[in-house]
């Protein structure tokens, strides 16, 4: 039992997007979906201009609207405070997507990874097709990460939703979520809020924090400290 949270230090973040890219890599996320994402905005007028960048992901809310909305308990809170999704139970009704105020849940309208199913070569005979590559490799996506399949569908099939699981498969192995491990700025810290000595608690106390759309009462577990 733990109470997992993530702290993102915006002062350290340089807005490079490595989190968003590597998340796709780790979780075999199809094109068009962003389990890890970011928002940015430019304010002011030249030459007094400010650019801000905030990396986003599922907030693993303590009071998760998507969990409440799910009619079949496919979306659920686990014993460590993670908001998880059970593809076996999911009926693809999209109630969670409607309830989710953060836009982090995606619905597989088509077979996922359409790109890798295409069978047209650009130069017949001399270049391959996406399908040919996957056949040669023996996986649906050539760089498919099998570790993802240890706790969730390795690739989520057509007809159900999918979302960030805070890399529960890695946490289980004692590793950090991949967006934490792969952040070159070391801007992300993952840890247990119930452990008073944890680094997340230290950072939150030292710097103060804000969370996204706190006014909704969702109690997000993703905390932001300092400024971009």
């Amino acid at each position: 039992m733990a109470n997992y949270a993530m702290v993102i230090d915006l002062h350290k973040c340089v807005g490079c997007g490595a989190c968003a890219i590597t998340c796709k890599n780790e979780n075999n996320v199809p094109e068009g979906f962003y389990w890890a994402n970011y928002v940015h905005k430019t304010t002011g007028t030249f030459p007094n201009v400010r650019y801000q960048f905030i990396p986003t992901l599922c907030n693993h809310c303590e009071n998760a609207p998507c969990v409440k909305a799910c009619p079949v308990q496919a979306m659920y809170k686990d014993e460590n405070g993670l908001t998880l999704h059970d593809p076996e139970k999911c009926i693809g009704c999209k109630a969670c997507i409607i309830a989710d105020p953060y836009g982090v849940i995606y619905f597989n309208k088509k077979e996922p990874h359409q790109f890798w199913r295409n069978n047209e070569p650009v130069i017949p005979g001399a270049t391959a097709t996406a399908k040919e590559v996957t056949e040669k490799i023996g996986e649906q996506v050539p760089y498919y990460n099998p570790a993802r399949a240890t706790t969730y569908a390795g690739i989520r099939p057509k007809g159900i939703v999918e979302k960030c699981s805070l890399c529960d498969h890695r946490i289980k192995e004692g590793e950090e979520p991949y967006c934490v491990a792969s952040c070159p700025a070391e801007a992300r810290t993952f840890g247990d809020l119930d452990d008073p000595g944890s680094k997340v608690n230290y950072l939150l106390q030292k710097y103060g924090y804000f969370r996204l759309r706190e006014e909704l009462g969702t109690k997000p577990k993703v905390y932001y400290i300092r400024q971009y």
Binding site: T22, N118, I123, G125, I137, P142, Y143, P184
Partner: peptide, 24 residues
Amino acid sequence: GKVCPRAHLSLQQVYDPDRIKVPM
């Protein structure tokens, strides 16, 4: 032990279906 976001794109370069697979 750090890499920038570019490094990860390389996976999609090496497995790019549009690579030339034989002499032309």
